[in-house]
Amino acid sequence: MDVELKNIRVEIPPQGQLLFELPELKVAAGERVLIQGPSGRGKTTLLHIVAGLLRPQSGSVKVGGQDLGQMTEPQRSAWRRDHLALVFQKLNLLPHLTSLENVMLMRRHGEFVSREEAQEALAQVKMSSRERVLAAHLSLGEQQRVAVARVLVASPQLILADEPTSSLDDFHTQEIIEALLGATGGSEGVGQNKARGPQATLVVVSHDHRLRQSFTRHLDFDQMVKA
C-alpha cells in the first residue's frame, strides 16, 4: 500500500503555531522506511496523519490511492481496521486483558479474529507460554511482542510503528524489528492469511540509530519538513 502526502501543514492548537510543513512524502507499496529525527519535532504527529487519526490544517493524504481527507470518521476507523496496524513505544495493550485477549481484539473485515489465530500469532513471537498473563504483568519487551503478534494476526497492508524500540535493550530491539519485518510478509502469515498478498508497507519513526540497517530507505525528518 503506497503513501502519498502533499503540502501538509500542521499547527499546534489553540494558538495555531506552526509545528511543521511537509512539501511531499512518497512511500511505495512494500517499502520499509525509517524516519529518524530528534524528539519533539512532530514524527508521531506525522504518523498519526498517515493513520487518519489527525487531520492536518492543510494538504492531502492519500494512502493506497484513497484520500483520507474525503473520508468520514467512521470510514477512517473502518479503513484503519481493515488495512492498518499501529505499534506504539509502550502501553500498546489493554492492561486488564490477557496477552491472548489483546491479540483477539483485532478484527478483519469487521470480524474478530479467532482464538486459534491469536494463539498462532503469539507462538510466532514466542509468547505462547504467556498467553494467559494479564498485559499489566508483562515486561515492556513482552508487551511489544504481543503488539507485534497483533500486527501479524491482522495482516495489514500498512504497518506504522512509533518508537517501537526506544525503551528496549539491544537483544529485544533486534527481536522486535525482526518480528515487525516478518509481519510485512517476509515470513509466513497467520491463519487465514497464510496466503498473503503483496508485501506490506512498513513505516517506522524513531530516533534509535540501531535500526538503520534493517530498512530499505532512511529519511531524516528535519530535512523533510520546514519548521
Binding site: 473502518a78 479503513w79 481496521r81 506504539f88 489493554l94 492492561p95
Partner: peptide
C-alpha cells in the same frame, strides 16, 4: 489512553 488505542485499532466511536 486505552480507548484511544482501541480507536487506533479501528474501533469506531
Amino acid at each position: 489512553v486505552q480507548l484511544a488505542i482501541l480507536r487506533a485499532l479501528g474501533y469506531t466511536k
